[in-house]
Design a protein around this nucleic acid. Structure first.
Length: 271
DNA sequence: CAACGGACCTGCCTGC
DNA sequence: TGCAGGCAGGTCCGTT
């Protein structure tokens, strides 16, 4: 699921409802996610105040005085604000119950997500300490990509999806950014010019910022923190459109598989 | 190191 | 209608 815009949309959706509130209780219905949820989480968070909800890459970081709760939504996770009485549905694995009858409910059918606790700064956590820059940061630009790309031998699609290079570019937006830049996903990183890298980084920023502004891409089961779906899906140029006509030139879009992920591209627009 | 394949898990869709 | 197979937004881990 969620790519970076969905995670940021979730952060903005849930933050106003829980920042400044204290945890009344934690209910674990299914603690086996990608890694086990700490079974003493209720004791750790009981009567503690949540100060802020941050995001780094696709991780949501819930800041408490004595540590951070690290939440990743994996492929199928979502967070919603509900009331404690709201009927429990299948795969509603965790409730963080706050005061004022506010409940943060974690739902994740495939259980590829994670909920972890750390008393250190989240940036020091082993899952976060090797991540590349945020795509919307100024550090992420054409020169940066050119420098790293010269040292490597791999295709551009898996390069921009590599979290060591830049975070937050998942399969949907990798496809869309390469289409918009006119770069075929199979091109080698060592073979791409500074001019192209500048355009690519600019387009990645633009596409992600646009998707965030519109509340994320909705496919299947994603819902934002307030339960409303996002509206970016209808603006996709290539993702999920293999065999259909290119919206720019009319050529039939083609599909290949790279690193077990589907890439869709226009053989005319992307060289 | 870097690159690649496999693994984790459920739901949904297709085709027989 | 039932069932097997393939596929899905992510990313860690072990092996080359």
């Amino acid at each position: 699921m969620p790519e970076l815009p969905e995670v940021e949309t979730t952060r903005r959706g849930i933050a106003p409802h829980i920042e400044g509130k204290s945890v009344v209780s934690v209910i674990l219905r299914h603690s086996q996610l990608r890694w086990p949820i700490p079974c003493d989480l209720h004791t750790v968070l009981h009567e503690r105040t949540l100060h802020r909800v941050h995001r780094r890459a696709k991780y949501l970081l819930l800041e408490f005085t004595h540590g951070h709760l690290i939440i990743h939504l994996g492929m199928s996770g979502s967070l919603r604000i509900v009331t404690p009485e709201t009927r429990i549905q299948k795969h509603d694995h965790v409730d963080l119950l706050f005061d004022e009858n506010t409940c943060l409910r974690y739902h994740d059918p495939r259980r590829f997500g994670a909920i972890l606790w750390t008393v250190n700064t989240p940036e020091q956590h082993v899952l976060l300490n090797k991540l590349g820059p945020e795509p919307l940061d100024d550090i992420f630009n054409g020169e940066y990509l050119l420098t790293l790309g010269q040292k490597r031998k791999k295709n551009i699609k898996s390069f921009i999806m590599d979290n060591h290079i830049v975070v937050g570019v998942g399969n949907i937006y990798a496809n869309e950014a390469l289409f918009k830049t006119g770069i075929r996903p199979t091109r080698l990183v060592s073979d791409i010019s500074l001019k192209e890298y500048k355009a690519l980084s600019k387009n990645i920023k633009q596409i992600l910022a646009g998707a965030i502004a519109q509340g994320g891409t909705t496919l299947r089961d994603f819902v934002g923190g307030d339960g409303k779906p996002g509206y970016f899906a209808q603006q996709l140029f290539v993702y999920g459109r293999s065999g259909e006509d290119c919206k720019v030139c009319g050529t039939t879009l083609e599909e290949i598989r790279q690193q077990q992920r589907i890439s869709v591209f226009c053989p005319q627009c992307q060289q």
